[in-house]
């Protein structure tokens, strides 16, 4: 324990059966220099207070479970080094989401938005597996690859000022996902998704704050996806007046 120093953690606690509003609880624990914020939470859960609830799993920044507010900023706690912080670290549930318990937030709203953008390949005619793969050049793959890297950690929703104002806004991750399929050379569903993008709460609700891309731990750049989607959705809409065929599609 000699390599350990003490740090104080101020953690938001909330049990809907007991508390009217969230409160904070303070824990002082010994930490190792290479620990992430998540390691400290797990130490508290295991050794100090078994009633603390938080979500986590892979601890390697790919499952997307452990997004929380750390000193007021949305962070993936398994990727956030304690050494970047001072003696006191505040940890709370992600902003802009209803809180279920302690650091656990409600994801059902997001799951509906996720489904709304039809995140699957849409084609008029599908191939059987026996007919082999679709050809896709490395350049065609590159066109959407970045937007396929989202781990659904929800940091962008916690950072987005529009999500806070407008709960029905599709939000950065869902739009980036829909846009990813629109850009996929194997997909033909862009007209359907653009329809969704143009509806109320769609891409045009975005107010260009760019916070989503600032906080994204995987460099997905959802703000770029939203801006591209705004353009493509309006072009698609304009086209529907010129060519009746594209309207039907």
């Amino acid at each position: 324990m000699s390599d350990r120093q003490k740090k104080t953690f101020v953690i938001t606690r909330f049990d809907p059966d007991k508390d009217e509003v969230p409160k904070t609880q303070t824990y002082e624990i010994p930490v190792r220099p290479d620990w992430k914020v998540l390691d400290a939470l797990n130490f508290i859960k295991d050794e100090v207070d078994g009633t603390l609830s938080h979500r986590w799993s892979c601890r390697m920044a790919v499952c997307g479970s452990c997004g929380m507010m750390v000193n007021g900023e949305p962070k993936l706690t398994c990727k956030t080094a304690l050494s970047d912080y001072g003696d006191t670290v505040e940890v709370g549930p992600l902003s802009n989401f209803p809180v279920i318990r302690d650091l656990v937030v409600e994801l059902e709203g997001f799951m509906e938005k996720f489904k709304a953008v039809k995140p699957w390949i849409l084609r008029a005619k599908e191939k059987a597996p026996e007919e082999g793969v679709y050809r896709q050049s490395p350049a065609e793959l590159e066109a959407f690859k970045q937007f396929s890297m989202c781990i659904n950690c929800m940091l962008c929703y916690a950072a987005c000022p529009v999500v806070g104002n407008e709960p029905d806004y599709l939000g950065p991750a869902a739009i980036a996902l829909g846009h990813r399929y629109n850009l996929d050379s194997r997909d033909e569903g862009d007209a359907e998704r653009n329809q969704v993008f143009r509806e109320e709460g769609g891409v045009y609700s975005c107010s260009y704050a760019n916070e989503c891309s600032e906080v994204c731990p995987k460099n997905v750049d959802p703000a770029a996806a939203i801006n591209q989607a705004k353009f493509l959705a309006v072009v698609d809409w304009a086209k529907s007046f010129v060519s009746p065929r594209s309207r039907k599609k």
């Binding site: 109320e200 769609g202 045009y204 609700s205 309006v234």
Partner: peptide, 12 residues
């Protein structure tokens, strides 16, 4: 809300 795409096009 319905006109958002048009407004955005004018804005852009």
């Amino acid at each position: 809300a319905r006109l958002e795409p048009v407004i955005w096009a004018l804005f852009g």
